[in-house]
Design a protein around this nucleic acid. Structure first.
Length: 420
RNA sequence: GGAGGCGUGCCCGAGUGGCCGAAGGGAGCGCACUGCUAAUGCGUUAAGGGGUUAACACCUCUUCCGGGGUUCGAAUCCCCGCGCCUCCGCCA
């Protein structure tokens, strides 16, 4: 949720910020609904003030005067009962309209409507020279026997996979590796609930914007998380944190569930786009003053991990149109896949400023009263896609795959080889 | 799944229909005192919205887990939900 006061006081500034997203639909409707709301609010509040006075007077009135006073107060109360539902309706309309407004892009966000307008900030790491034709991860993975898509599909449908054998060990190694690196840097490991209530989805901005992407358990009114960002953000909902404790940093480890609606036919094979994958996620809560420094920290951690895994990547700054609703700025790290001959988004860092904390009511107490915290999130390791990048980049001519040095303490093996 | 108890401000906790936005304590802040720290004394501090102001101030509404209801009036009474605790059942 954006700050409606800002919209009210300076609609042009909001409009200008939104122009980076290629404009946002429904802004005028929100402004109009807000005006109607405030008009009604004033009406009702004046009546309430009168009613409160009348009703208070009854308590102090002499017994003889009471019947008349009660009659008068009752009339006011009756009138209120007619007006209040109208106010309620107007307010809900305002809220549901405003809930669709995305966050305001930061000034450094490039303008643009689609991913074609994202800006490549830089390339990091050397692409290897292969003296053989590099294979893609599907071919490699199947030959190595580390995952099984076909039986995944048999059991659960397309886009579900079994990790098998050393694939599982590789996954656990990546998770341990990421958790240790982050926990050294002050991020507390968390294994959150995977099923959450609606308020958590709404509070993080996944509802209403991305509702179609989320699995729903209708019987129990719960939703499967698409990222641990959701339960980590909701963890402190309704709380007032001590400013001295900020930043609060978490390393969430969880499976992630995504319906991948609307991506039929895209990345249908292998581990790239699946309905379920495991991920270690960074999540920070901090002050408005520090949030861009924290953003830099999260980005640096992501790069540190990619470099340790010896994966060449490029840094892509998302343009306004490619931001997602809750982010004020988003930066992706895209790995180069020599087999597939393309880049693949491996990690992504977002500063959602106060967009989530306003909905979740997470504040901090500082010298000048309370203020909304800023929340940030960023991938540490998305296991499936990281395996993709490891396979393709570290493959050898004989079909084996070298494990990067940094990961070996966690895997216990230095090479993946096809089963004899 | 069954029975009962509980949910109050930053934290703890009193409050069973009007004098309650809420006693008291802790914590924070300010002042005083004190070589320093600590201790002590006095004062002060809820949040959110709307109006108004150059600003301070001020006016007003809402909020005692959430949602409904009764009433002129609800922290207080009733109903539903959520959470926590205790007991029983079940279970890794």
């Amino acid at each position: 949720m954006i700050d409606l006061r800002l919209l009210r006081e300076d609609p042009d500034a909001v409009r200008a910020a939104y122009s980076k997203r290629g404009g946002v639909k429904g802004l005028d409707e929100v402004i109009a609904a807000d005006a109607v709301y405030r008009e009604r609010l004033k009406e009702v509040e004046e009546l309430r003030a009168e009613q409160n006075r009348a009703s208070k007077a009854i308590g102090n009135a002499a017994p003889d005067d009471r019947p008349a006073a009660i009659a008068e107060a009752k009339e006011l109360s009756d009138r209120l009962k007619e007006l209040e539902p109208v106010l309620e309706e107007v307010q809900q309309k305002l809220e549901s309209l405003a809930a669709h407004l995305p966050n305001l892009p930061h000034s450094s966000v490039p303008e643009g409507a689609s991913e074609d307008d994202n800006v490549i900030e830089r390339e990091v790491g050397e692409r290897r020279d292969f003296d053989f034709e590099p294979k893609d991860h599907v071919e490699l993975g199947e030959a190595l026997g580390i995952f099984d898509s076909e039986r995944g599909a048999k059991t659960s449908g397309s886009r579900f996979v079994y990790l098998t054998g050393n694939g599982v060990l590789l996954e656990l190694a990546l998770v341990r590796f990421a958790l240790e690196r982050l926990s050294e840097r002050g991020f507390k490991p968390m294994a959150p609930p995977l099923l959450v209530r609606e308020h958590a989805m709404y509070g993080t901005g996944f509802f209403p914007a991305d509702e179609f992407e989320i699995y729903r358990l209708e019987r129990d009114d719960l939703y499967l998380i698409g990222t641990s960002e959701v339960p980590l953000a909701a963890y402190h909902s309704g709380e007032v944190l001590d400013a001295a404790d900020l930043p609060v940093r978490y390393a969430g480890f969880s499976p992630c569930f995504r319906r991948e609606a609307g991506s039929y036919g895209k990345d249908t094979k292998g581990l790239i786009r699946v309905h379920q994958f495991d991920k270690v996620e960074q999540f920070s809560l901090t002050t408005a003053e520090d949030s861009w420094d924290e953003f830099a920290t999260i980005r640096a951690n992501e790069e540190m991990i990619l470099q340790a895994l010896e994966i060449p990547y490029r840094v892509a700054v998302m343009c306004g149109g490619d931001l997602g609703s809750s982010a004020a700025k988003k930066v992706d790290h895209e790995a180069w896949l020599p087999g597939a001959q393309r880049y693949l988004e491996l990690t992504s860092a977002s500063n959602t400023t106060d967009y989530q904390s306003r909905r979740l009511k997470i504040r901090h107490r500082g010298k000048e009263g309370t203020a909304l915290v800023h929340t940030l999130n960023g991938t540490a390791v998305a296991v499936g896609r990281t395996i993709v990048a490891l396979l393709e980049n570290h493959q050898q001519a004989d079909g084996s795959v070298d494990i990067p040095e940094a990961l070996r303490p966690y895997t216990g093996f230095s090479k993946l080889t096809p089963p004899a």
